[in-house]
Measured scan of single mutants.
Amino acid sequence: TVKFKYKGEEKQVDISKIKKVWRVGKMISFTYDEGGGKTGRGAVSEKDAPKELLQ
């Protein structure tokens, strides 16, 4: 599970739902399947990112 803040809201998403991951400076950005055909997005700092996300 990845915990992150998006627009001031605390969120979390299961690693299995993450589609795409990329690095922006010291942040790790990602998109994930929100269900219902929607794609969500989020970002975590490199130090807070789970190891599975960095692979």
Results as ranks from 00 to 15, higher is better:
50 P>A: 04
21 V>N: 01
51 K>Q: 14
4 F>T: 02
11 K>Q: 07
5 K>N: 13
22 W>K: 05
49 A>I: 05
13 V>S: 02
8 G>C: 05
47 K>A: 13
24 V>R: 10
51 K>T: 13
44 V>A: 02
35 G>W: 03
14 D>S: 13
53 L>K: 01
25 G>T: 02
39 T>A: 06
27 M>Y: 14
14 D>C: 07
12 Q>M: 12
12 Q>P: 02
5 K>D: 06
11 K>C: 05
28 I>P: 00
42 G>M: 03
52 E>P: 07
18 I>Y: 00
26 K>L: 10
16 S>K: 08
54 L>F: 09
53 L>T: 01
55 Q>A: 14
37 G>E: 05
41 R>A: 07
15 I>F: 08
16 S>M: 09
2 V>Q: 01
25 G>F: 03
31 T>P: 00
41 R>W: 14
3 K>S: 11
13 V>N: 00
50 P>Q: 03
11 K>N: 04
39 T>C: 08
17 K>I: 06
31 T>S: 07
20 K>C: 09
29 S>W: 15
31 T>M: 12
53 L>D: 01
7 K>L: 09
33 D>M: 06
5 K>I: 15
28 I>D: 00
50 P>E: 02
34 E>Q: 12
16 S>N: 14
48 D>L: 11
6 Y>K: 06
3 K>H: 09
31 T>Q: 08
44 V>D: 00
44 V>W: 02
55 Q>W: 11
19 K>I: 15
22 W>V: 05
4 F>P: 01
43 A>G: 07
51 K>S: 12
16 S>L: 09
27 M>F: 12
21 V>E: 00
1 T>L: 12
38 K>P: 03
23 R>Y: 07
49 A>T: 03
19 K>E: 06
15 I>N: 02
38 K>V: 12
34 E>A: 15
18 I>N: 00
17 K>H: 11
4 F>K: 00
2 V>W: 03
11 K>W: 05
47 K>V: 14
22 W>C: 04
53 L>S: 01
52 E>L: 10
17 K>W: 07
32 Y>I: 02
39 T>Y: 11
54 L>A: 07
43 A>T: 15
55 Q>K: 13
33 D>Q: 06
20 K>V: 10
50 P>H: 04
17 K>M: 11
47 K>T: 11
37 G>V: 03
34 E>L: 15
3 K>Y: 14
3 K>R: 13
41 R>E: 10
9 E>G: 08
1 T>C: 08
31 T>A: 08
49 A>R: 01
39 T>M: 15
37 G>A: 04
36 G>H: 12
8 G>V: 02
55 Q>L: 13
33 D>C: 04
27 M>Q: 07
38 K>N: 10
13 V>R: 01
36 G>P: 08
7 K>I: 03
47 K>R: 13
7 K>T: 02
17 K>Y: 10
17 K>V: 09
10 E>R: 07
39 T>S: 08
55 Q>S: 11
19 K>M: 13
5 K>S: 14
18 I>D: 00
42 G>V: 03
22 W>I: 06
38 K>S: 08
26 K>P: 09
41 R>M: 13
43 A>D: 09
38 K>D: 05
32 Y>E: 00
29 S>T: 12
51 K>Y: 14
1 T>P: 08
35 G>H: 05
34 E>S: 10
44 V>C: 04
2 V>H: 01
13 V>D: 00
18 I>Q: 00
12 Q>W: 09
2 V>P: 01
30 F>I: 02
41 R>S: 07
12 Q>C: 10
21 V>D: 01
8 G>N: 09
13 V>G: 00
10 E>V: 15
31 T>W: 09
1 T>Q: 13
33 D>T: 05
36 G>E: 14
27 M>S: 07
36 G>K: 08
16 S>P: 04
42 G>K: 01
52 E>V: 10
19 K>A: 06
51 K>C: 07
22 W>S: 03
23 R>T: 04
54 L>Y: 06
48 D>N: 13
